[in-house]
């Protein structure tokens, strides 16, 4: 579904991605793991068109999206739920969700999608008129995922889902991601939390210094000695 081929990305003089290649097959959860500054966010910002790659190619369903503007990429169904939620804090929960359906292809399904989001996260319906900035971290994360779902995503990229959340809430949200996958949406999970991410993923890439260091089936990677030592403290 998504194919990244030998991309390089620099911020001025500093190169952050080096000949990076990866693939996200349709209908799976693929984890992109790594420590801080490993290049995870740069990779997904390149996919979303926020950052422009200096070389290489990114294709989505066979279409080259490397040079597309972010709104054109959203129109194709590639949606990013950014790190730190980045909600519109002075708008209500419902307004945030409605903005999720800004793209042309999503507007026709606003009613259906908002119902789906409210069924998935009932707390959002209870608090739909509250300002997003006044919600707890967990509720904000639900709103951010809900906003992503409002755009009829084909590929949902979730950056640091677990950041700043209680472990029990993270478990709950990860279970929700499995439900979303079962509805036919492909998920790219970008995380520092290796153990929990591998538990729900089909495949995983581990980034180090802007390069893919390890990749493989999630089940196999949990047994990888390097990964165990570096990320699982075992």
């Amino acid at each position: 579904m998504l194919k990244i081929e030998q991309i390089n990305l620099s911020y001025g003089e500093i190169q952050v991605l080096w000949d990076m290649s990866l693939q996200i097959p349709e209908g799976q959860i693929v984890a992109l793991l790594g420590a801080n500054s490993a290049g995870k966010s740069s990779t997904i910002n390149a996919i979303s068109g926020i950052e422009k790659i200096s070389s290489g190619r990114i294709t989505f369903q066979g279409k080259d999206i490397s040079k597309m503007a972010p709104h054109e990429i959203v129109e194709l169904g590639v949606i990013q739920v950014p790190e730190g939620r980045k909600l519109f804090n002075f708008m209500t929960i419902e307004e945030n969700l409605l903005l999720g359906a800004y793209s042309k292809h999503a507007r026709k399904d606003i009613k259906k999608n908002i119902r789906r989001v409210y069924d998935m996260f009932p707390i959002l319906e209870e608090r739909k008129d509250q300002l997003a900035g006044d919600m707890s971290g967990g509720q904000q994360q639900m709103c951010a995922i809900g906003r992503g779902l409002m755009s009829n995503p084909k590929l949902l990229i979730i950056d640091e889902l677990s950041l700043g959340l209680a472990p029990i809430l993270v478990q709950e949200l990860l279970r929700t991601l499995t439900t979303i996958k079962d509805e036919g949406i492909t998920i790219m999970l970008v995380e520092q939390n290796v153990k929990q991410s591998l538990a729900i993923s089909n495949y995983a890439y581990v980034l180090e210094n802007g390069r893919v260091a390890i990749q493989g089936d999630a089940a196999q990677l949990t047994e990888d000695p390097h990964l165990k030592k570096a990320y699982l403290g075992m």
Binding site: S48, G49, I50, H71, I79, F90, M91, L99, Y102, S103
Partner: peptide
């Protein structure tokens, strides 16, 4: 929707990009 998009850009430019606002 366009009015909300204007407010969205003023509040959180990157998130506005990510929901598909031009």
């Amino acid at each position: 929707m366009v009015g909300r998009a204007i407010r969205a850009v003023s509040m959180q430019r990157q998130a506005a990009y990510l929901v598909g606002v031009n």
